[in-house]
Amino acid sequence: MRFYRQAAIRPNLERRARIVEAVRAFFGAAGFLEIETPMRIPAPAPEIHIDAQETGDWFLQTSPELCMKRLLAAGYEKIFQICRCFRKGERGGRHVPEMTLLEWYAAGMNYLDLMNQCEALIGFVASRIDAGHRLVYRGHTVDLTPPWERLTVAGAFERFGGMTPEQALDRGCFDEIMGLDIEPQLGITRPLFLYDYPARCGALARLKPTDNSVAERFELYIAGMELCNAFSELTDPREQRARFDNDNRARRAAGKTVYPVAEPFLQALEHMPPAAGNALGLDRLVMLFTGAASIDEVVAFVPEEL
């Protein structure tokens, strides 16, 4: 039957709508302003493992991060948006090239504050959709009662990786060990925040003032699935420019597109207050609350159907 897949996943899409409604209610009650930023931009952040989709001489956003931080610099203290983001070549059970991100930023907060906010957000969503305090996903029963577990990246590599994060980075196997050995072990019975990434994995995150070898970054894992990526934000434009230059050199060495410098963003960093930001995969959140084995079960259309 034509549209059979769409008919079969209707209960998931109905729950998705309730989840989106709950997210908006949570941030509205917390005093956040919902905003929109352009999807088509001249210069994405040059992260080595994320490739932007070209659209003419510009690119479709991989994240609204750069524009949202410019709003922080303009005096917006608490902002969020639910938007479409595009990552070239990403397709799999948990990836589609066009995905939905929930991204939010708050002036005066740090990555530890965002851990608490993640707990509150997901607990609020669970209550609004009558999911209770336990989530059952792919055979795992996860207790959502806070506080959730916290584990440093160094601790995770010691426990599951057989080497230090620095050794893994030097040998070029950091991502492989994370994906194959560490991530499947995380958040199995309770959600887990993996935090304090090596400085080389800091991207746009601030280095920890008491230990410059790590960045104030965390990822949240539930039932072995990465759900979000958060930082205490770097606000030093000189350091950020140097990181962008290093990332573009790495992209060039890998034969990838070298992106233009995001000058308006770097100039805005001069005026950006201390802040923290979080990018949460909304599609994956829906997967968790519907028990979906694949992202295909929670989106109305996948690329192969277009």
Rank of each mutant, 00 (worst) to 15 (best):
R2G: 08
R5S: 10
A8T: 10
R10Q: 15
R15F: 08
R16H: 03
R18D: 09
R18L: 12
R18P: 06
I19V: 14
V20P: 00
E21P: 00
A22N: 10
F27L: 09
F27P: 13
F27E: 01
G28A: 15
A30S: 10
G31F: 03
L33K: 05
L33R: 06
P42I: 10
P42M: 07
A45Q: 00
P46R: 06
I50A: 08
D51S: 14
A52P: 01
Q53S: 13
T55Y: 14
D57V: 10
W58G: 04
Q61D: 06
L66Q: 13
K69V: 03
A73S: 14
A74H: 01
G75R: 05
I79V: 15
F80D: 09
Q81K: 05
Q81P: 03
C83L: 10
K88R: 15
G89H: 00
V96G: 08
P97M: 13
P97K: 14
E98S: 06
E98N: 06
L101R: 02
L102C: 09
L102Y: 11
W104L: 08
A107T: 11
A107Y: 05
G108H: 07
M109A: 14
L112W: 12
L112R: 11
D113C: 07
C118M: 07
E119Q: 14
G123A: 04
G123S: 02
F124S: 14
S127V: 00
R128Y: 01
R128M: 12
G132Y: 02
H133L: 11
H133D: 06
R134L: 01
V136F: 00
V136E: 15
G139L: 04
V142M: 03
L144G: 05
V153H: 04
G162M: 07
T164N: 05
E166F: 01
R171N: 12
G172D: 10
F174L: 11
D175N: 11
M178I: 12
G179R: 13
E183Q: 13
T189L: 03
P191N: 13
F193L: 13
Y195R: 05
D196H: 14
A199F: 03
A203H: 06
A203Q: 02
A203K: 07
D211V: 12
N212H: 04
S213K: 13
R217S: 11
Y221E: 09
I222G: 05
G224I: 11
E226K: 02
L227G: 11
A230E: 06
P237S: 04
P237N: 02
E239I: 07
D245T: 09
N246Y: 06
N246P: 00
N246Q: 15
N248W: 02
G255Y: 01
G255F: 05
G255R: 02
K256H: 13
K256F: 06
T257C: 01
V258C: 03
Y259N: 14
V261R: 05
V261C: 10
E263H: 09
A268P: 08
L269R: 02
P274T: 10
A276P: 05
L280A: 10
L285M: 10
V286Y: 00
V286N: 05
L288C: 11
F289K: 08
T290D: 10
G291N: 08
I295M: 01
A300T: 05
F301S: 13
P303Q: 11
L306M: 12
